[in-house]
């Protein structure tokens, strides 16, 4: 099973193992990782599941689609090149070891 590491703004790291096909948001919710709100439950409607993909992995994640792109504009923390909605980031075996950074705030 691929693993994902969530890095909190204070530098604390949490690593979890997830089944392929799970989103980075769902994995965080299942593990009770704070820092992701996910108010809309993954319908790309709330922008409260924002993460920054670690530079090392930016190449390895699928591209941002149109609706996600639109919604990232609504995120509460600054949008960067590496910004993603974690609900739209579905984990595959190739993404094993993925590191995502949590933003200062989601709301």
């Amino acid at each position: 099973m691929p693993s994902i590491t969530y890095v909190h703004p204070n530098g604390e790291r949490q690593t979890v193992e997830v089944k392929s096909g799970t989103s980075v948001m769902q994995a965080a919710m299942a593990e009770g990782i704070s820092g992701i709100v996910a108010e809309c439950g993954g319908s790309a409607m709330c922008a409260t599941c924002h993460v920054y993909v670690d530079p090392e992995f930016v190449e390895h994640v699928p591209d941002v689609q149109e609706i996600e792109d639109e919604m990232l504009e609504c995120a509460a923390s600054e949008r960067r090149e590496s910004s993603r909605l974690s609900c739209q980031l579905v984990v595959s075996d190739e993404m094993d070891g993925l590191v995502v950074h949590l933003p200062e705030t989601q709301v």
Partner: peptide
């Protein structure tokens, strides 16, 4: 509100 691609757009 549903879930996935049809999840409520008005939520």
């Amino acid at each position: 509100f549903g879930s996935g691609i049809h999840g409520c757009v008005g939520q």
